[in-house]
Design a binder for these strands. Structure first.
Length: 254
DNA sequence: ATGCCTCAGCTCCTGAGA
């Protein structure tokens, strides 16, 4: 079974690339972030023709998440129960016996800002909910755009970017606390060559120079850890003429 | 360097992203 996550930065613009990618990578589940469209504009038909059912949670202009799957998704939940939020950031469902959570974590803009404080409270809300979800659903995958680096290995220039957004100790503390619930960074279950990133700024030829960050992650629960066969970041779509700034991450379970 | 791209929208500029 293969599950993937991809921040597409506008599904309207990226739909052809999503369809191409699914044709080349027929994963069982694909979590999408930053749809930037409302549910009435969601391309259900095009995805159905490609063999995917979709559960979407859209919003005008910003945010928006979806779960695509080959088999039906049940127990679909939108956003974080118990955490009031105006933004469409989380969608979860049970697919093939696995609890799948797709999430678009807040950006946070700048340490100390109002948006940073929102990011911190959102992270706490997520953690409290995921703790309970793990009790109900031991076989769980939490994947998406976390907007947080684990450590300096996830950062192209840790000195330049020290304590900037995605790299602060407060954010990394929250990420470690989430992992401490009984989750594992799927990519780091395997030896990495280094300089493995999932996002590159559009500006300044950042992709060509591999000036990136690893901020898109797939976390798997204790129960699923033994079945993880591989985890890779697919840089191919980032080479498109008009790419998302993020690359998909794919995990393969036995 | 309060810049550099890209996207959405009350669209020819602005806000937000990361």
């Amino acid at each position: 079974m293969k599950l993937a996550t991809w921040n597409v930065n506008s599904l309207t613009v990226r739909l052809p690339q999503v369809l191409d990618w699914l044709a080349a990578n027929p994963v069982d589940v694909l979590a999408l972030q930053e749809l930037k469209l409302t549910d009435d504009k969601f391309p259900f038909d095009a995805l159905a023709q490609a063999g995917y059912q979709a559960q979407c949670f859209g919003q005008k202009t910003y945010n928006g998440v979806a779960l695509l799957s080959r088999t039906p998704a049940t127990e679909v939940v939108r956003n974080i129960p118990g955490f009031a939020d105006d933004m469409a950031r989380v969608i979860s469902a049970t697919i093939d016996g696995i609890r799948v959570i797709g999430a678009y974590f807040p950006n946070g803009q700048e340490p100390g800002s109002e948006k940073f404080e929102y990011k911190m409270s959102w992270l706490k809300g997520l953690r409290d909910w995921v703790r309970a979800e793990l009790v109900q659903h031991p076989r769980l995958v939490l994947m998406g755009d976390y907007n947080i680096t684990f450590d300096d290995a996830d950062v192209w220039d840790p000195v330049l970017l020290k304590d900037t957004i995605h790299c602060t100790e407060e954010e990394r503390y929250q990420l470690r606390a989430l992992v401490a619930l009984g989750l594992h960074d799927a990519l780091r279950l395997f030896p990495q060559p280094g300089k493995s990133y999932s996002w590159w700024d559009y500006r300044d030829f950042a992709f060509r120079r591999n000036r990136g960050l690893r901020i898109d992650h797939i976390l798997v629960s204790d129960a699923l850890k033994p079945s993880v066969q591989s985890c890779v970041i697919d840089k191919t779509p980032r080479k498109n003429e008009r790419p998302s700034d993020h690359a998909p991450v794919v995990v393969t379970l036995l």
